[in-house]
Simulated assay, not measured.
Amino acid sequence: MGKWSRRAFITTGVLAGGAVVIGVAIRPGSRADKVAGLIASDDETVFNVWVKISPDNTITAVIPHAEMGQGVHTTLAMMLADEMDADWQLVEMMEAPAHEEYANYALAKGYTLGDPDFPAFLIGTVDGIFLTASKAMNLQITGGSTSVPTTGQLGMRVAGAAVKSVLLQAAADTWDVPVDELIARKSHIIHAASDQSAPYSDFAQQAATLSQPAKPRLKTTDEYTIMGTDVQRFDVPAKVDGSALFGIDAVLPGMKYATVKAAPVFGAKVKSIDAGSIQDMPGIRKVVNLGDAVAVVADGYWQAKQALDRLPVEFEEAGNEAVEQSDIFKQFTRDMDTALANGDEIVDQQTGDADAAMSAASSVVEAEYRVPY
């Protein structure tokens, strides 16, 4: 057993106190069965909510986060594939469906506890508690730079290592050899002593019937073969050739479109709207006063945009009309200088000794980056 953190120890004590009542009942159980019909065809083997294997030995990582340019679809797939010792050329990804089994319990767990070292017998109960809470909150979200340290570290890596473990065991049972004589490499199981080698897909169905370890061994950094390498991102080709679908591309039966004009400065409110001036324009359905903005709803986007451009809207003055971006930057600079001078700065995270490193550096490059607002 690894070293327990103080937080993990305290949390374990709290959870263990109610284990007799809720310990078994609240465990996640077989979540894969609940989503298999949504993420896999009949000939594919689903191991857990994160991974499936096809008959052609393709491994698919099921990613429960939105790709917004941050590379999360590729990164999380790499984390899973590395722990599986997969052949990256045989790895694909798919977006997880909107389903309660993809509630981000790993995010809730990671945010609350970090990455504590719980004993294996307690992990199911802990995960079950956070999954239940996440389902209640409909917590299937992406944001805050949380995908890698939570879903990646606590979900994808663990799932990948667990699947590799049962694949090795299934191969050992099939070949009647000790499991510790087998190695996994590039989506194949290898038994050097008998010169046998077979793809993961040969053992997938049998492996899926085995109990996956709750706390499989994860690789150390020196064992990585995929993480930390330069691979082509899954999302780039479609974005380059124009085939990628974005939110604005979605079309539903009877769907309407809205365009919005916000107040020009913070604090301003709508003073007047001449909605009648655009009511005769084609496709216009409604003009909505949002308080600090105005929306035009129409049958099509271009109709809504043209109408909004022609709509006379007057906003009340809020006292911020004379504020310039340069004034805001100057205020930021004054506030930061004052905080540093008074020792009032807030350190969110500190790793190493930055001051010492800067002092010892042979050369220092300084640059300042600013963005509006």
Rank of each mutant, 00 (worst) to 15 (best):
V21D: 10
D309K: 10
K239W: 04
A354Q: 06
Q89E: 15
L311E: 00
S243I: 11
S211P: 02
T75W: 04
M94K: 10
I278F: 05
D202H: 05
A198W: 11
T229V: 06
V24Q: 14
G13N: 10
R6D: 15
D327A: 14
Y257A: 10
R285F: 08
E44T: 09
L76M: 10
R217D: 11
G17S: 06
T220I: 07
V179G: 00
K239I: 03
A258T: 06
E100A: 07
F332L: 15
V166E: 05
G228Y: 03
A204F: 04
M336L: 13
V35P: 01
L182C: 00
M336C: 05
W302P: 10
Q169K: 09
G267E: 12
V287M: 00
I190K: 00
L113V: 07
V158M: 03
F47C: 05
A96C: 02
D299C: 02
D87F: 09
A298M: 01
F315H: 08
A244S: 05
D249V: 07
V91L: 03
V313H: 02
F9M: 15
R370P: 05
D337I: 02
M137E: 11
K215L: 15
D292N: 14
D127G: 01
D127V: 02
S41K: 15
S187Y: 08
D241S: 01
Y200I: 09
V177Q: 09
S30E: 15
G247V: 10
P282N: 13
T45F: 04
L311V: 01
V323P: 04
D176V: 14
D82N: 07
E366F: 13
A108V: 06
A86Y: 04
D280T: 14
A298W: 03
V365N: 13
V158T: 00
V270K: 04
I189Y: 05
